[in-house]
Design a protein around this nucleic acid. Structure first.
Lengths: 127, 127
DNA sequence: CGAAACCTTCCCGTAAAAGGATAGTTAAGC
DNA sequence: GCTTAACTATCCTTTTACGGGAAGGTTTCG
């Protein structure tokens, strides 16, 4: 399977598939005589696994850990849960930060008349 | 006022103050004979304005627009409100995305036993 | 006067690719 | 069988918003 086929099958752009090969995250199954990367079902599964991990917001390095566990039959679910719980905590932290920002900014936007006069509580606040 | 003094007064790192000068966001008031950047009260106010805009999550380019309005006495509050409302929408979009992620991941983490056995709904889901 | 504490520019590295240049390879159509 | 379109390869640059550090000039303190 050539790289564009593997890309489609895994739901990733070709550039990204090549990038993942370059950084040693998902190696192609092999190379053709002409040097073209070739992928098989297993390597495509790994690509799709990474795509889903990334969609969850796991970093490349976290995804690397996860795929290590994915391919390790002797893994413990505790190890996986630990990574997921850490990511969950990151998400919750970001949510708290965004909530504060949201409330402050919403307050300012509501207080701003938004007409053609220059006085503006948003500018007042920032300045 | 030398750069480290201006940095302290504005609450920014020296590196960042230099960077803002390089990209034409906040120019120093002038240069000494030896080529040192020198800042006055007005330029420090601009630095602090940018710092607060950045803390609100406005990008550098958005901050550049905002400071343009800040320094423009003929601005309309509608222009400022437009930028702020756009940023507010970005925040709300991010909040919605994070909420979906949070709920899914939380569900998976709850369902995972987290013991020393290999079977794990998180891995199952990603794979 | 010498050393510490400034300051300058320049270049590299970050995360995670995307975009583009240039060149080699393969598949399709006629 | 030949052209050409559509692939593929590597390599380099760009993105965001700086941070780290080198090499070297300046100022200030004791």
């Amino acid at each position: 399977m050539n790289i564009s086929h593997a890309a489609k099958a895994s739901g990733l752009p070709v550039k990204t598939v090549r990038y993942y090969a370059d950084i040693g995250l998902v190696a192609p199954a092999g190379r053709t005589e002409a040097g073209y990367r070739s992928y098989d079902a297993a390597s495509v599964r790994r690509l799709a696994f990474i795509r889903r991990a990334r969609e969850f917001g796991f970093s490349i390095e976290e995804s690397r850990e996860l795929i290590g566990l994915y391919q390790n039959d002797a893994r413990s679910s505790a190890d996986v849960k630990k990574l997921a719980a850490k990511r969950l905590e990151q998400i919750e932290q970001k949510q708290r930060e965004l909530q504060v920002l949201h409330d402050e900014l919403k307050h300012l936007v509501r207080a701003c008349r938004g007409d053609n006069r220059p006085d503006c509580p948003i500018i007042d606040y920032l300045g």
